[in-house]
Write a protein that binds this DNA or RNA. Structure first.
Lengths: 282, 282
DNA sequence: ACATTAATAGTGTGATCACAGTTGACTTGT
DNA sequence: ACAAGTCAACTGTGATCACACTATTAATGT
């Protein structure tokens, strides 16, 4: 008899070290979902540079969690896959690294950053601090059209949730918030907030696929109501509650994970402050 | 090759089906801490890539306001000035653009973003929101050495102010705050905050040269006192007061400076109309 | 047999070149 | 003398190649 463990995938990586092995079944849904080809969005090629298109594509792929953490990302590989030269790809990757979306490790490896309890809590706190402030500062610029567009995104969100389309669910959720914050012209908040989304996206996607959507109370309608009433305090509360509700109990399970994992591996000692992967001993 | 996963334990059950079994290693908070790229603070690294050195140098130059807004920045010009090829320079510029430090205009022009009243107020609000939160979250990790280092930066700040050395004044001020926020390991706040510093830096420098240092009350000693007492509320208040006091009445003179900035740069090209980032599919 | 070493394929970095579009000083026309 | 038109130099973008280094595979030794 074999004991199976249902787990929430946080990250994957590869190595040749075979010490300390345990058997776990991996659900097929976790298999690496590589970039979908022929993404019909194709925001109008316009006159954008190739680097911009590559960047935008990889950006949405990461934000919506279409790229699994641990999946190998190489310049030449992406260039060949996307049918372009290596030049635009490396600039796009450099840009994504500056946005904290990917990590460029020193050993010629690129990966999506690993999620940890501390990092998750920090990301949530930063999102609440920035997004509630951005919402309040966007409030004076809200028009009826803005609210209408947010409502459209909200209905798209419900529809996506109804058919368990996590991809569209995440996209609609981000679009809902983005239209709110982008109402203020020349907002310096949006780039910072989207950097946070890029860091949370891959984890949210995996959490959704394993736990399912967790919105019991629709905070979006509360936010919309606060917008109509021009109620600053209600808006701030709604945004914070939206972020906290949709995420917190994922964070609670994350806590248990940390306990469950630190316990059996206590003999590994404290986590090293800074450790380099040592080259093969000569 | 073996694939490892970092997982969150959700549930366990038993069965006899052994299909689709894979070997994984469960190690909590495992971090492949290979040297990350771009440690922005310490640019004195010896084995860094050329692109990293260029990026770090331009980064501090912008943050301390050594590059005047409107000064022409070209890839080949910087490459020749720094004695390197154009390749590292363009990647460094791309990275700085992603950090909101510079603007890549559509008409083949690069510039430091111009300051406006709205943008300045947004930057101040974002700094307060992020930095006070980062300070509070760093508080549990503060040690005596941290406070000692911050005091050293504070004395350096006073010394720089005494001799009107705005360059060192700004550097010491940023270093003071950075050591505080960096006390929390793996802080995701620091990159976001430094992005804000990069946007405020050029303007602060110009304001200093035109108005002079404006610290009447030293909020840094209050912050240090709050750190020693582990007083969360006092720390938050001190940080916010520090940012607000040091900047606010600079903002009052912002109007005149804004005119002075936009006036001589009339032929710098129009603001890019389509500066928004490509939204994900909705 | 297993660990160690050598070899090979593959990686990011940096340099150089071609190209289309822009800039800005110069030429030209009146 | 002054404005409009012109052209050469310059710009960022993208492609291709060389190089040092790495990780994976294959060969080797004990």
């Amino acid at each position: 008899m074999i004991t199976y463990v249902q787990v929430l995938l946080l990250s994957t990586w590869s190595t040749t070290d075979t010490s300390d092995l345990k058997a776990v079944q991996i659900r097929p849904a976790w298999r690496a979902q590589v970039l979908k080809e022929a993404d019909p969005t194709s925001e109008a090629l316009e006159d954008a540079t190739i680097q911009q298109r590559i960047h935008g594509r990889l950006r949405t792929d990461i934000m919506l969690g279409r790229i699994a953490p641990g999946e190998p990302l190489t310049i030449r590989g992406l260039a060949e896959k996307l049918g372009v030269s290596a030049m635009p790809v490396r600039e796009a990757l450099r840009r994504l690294a500056a946005e904290q979306a990917i990590e460029l490790l020193g050993n010629r490896r690129v990966r999506i950053p690993i999620m940890s309890v501390n990092r998750f809590e920090d990301l949530l706190a930063a999102r609440i601090a920035l997004e509630s402030e951005a919402a309040v500062r966007a409030l004076p610029h809200i028009t009826a059209e803005t609210i209408a567009e947010m409502e459209r995104h909200d209905t798209a969100l419900d529809a996506a949730m109804a058919r368990n389309d996590y991809d569209q669910w995440l996209a609609a959720n981000f679009a809902f918030h983005r239209t709110l914050y982008a109402a203020r012209p020349d907002s310096i908040f949006l780039p910072l907030i989207e950097s946070l989304w890029l860091q949370v996206g891959p984890f949210l996607r995996m959490a959704l696929e394993n736990v399912g959507p967790s919105y019991t109370v629709d905070r979006h309608v509360e936010a919309l109501q606060a917008l109509r009433e021009r109620n600053v305090m209600a808006l701030r509360i709604a945004i914070e509650a939206d972020l906290r509700d949709g995420i917190t109990h994922l964070g609670q399970r994350l806590m248990r994970l940390d306990e469950a994992l630190t316990l059996p591996a206590k003999h590994q000692g404290r986590r090293p402050k800074s450790r380099k992967i040592s080259p093969p001993p000569a």
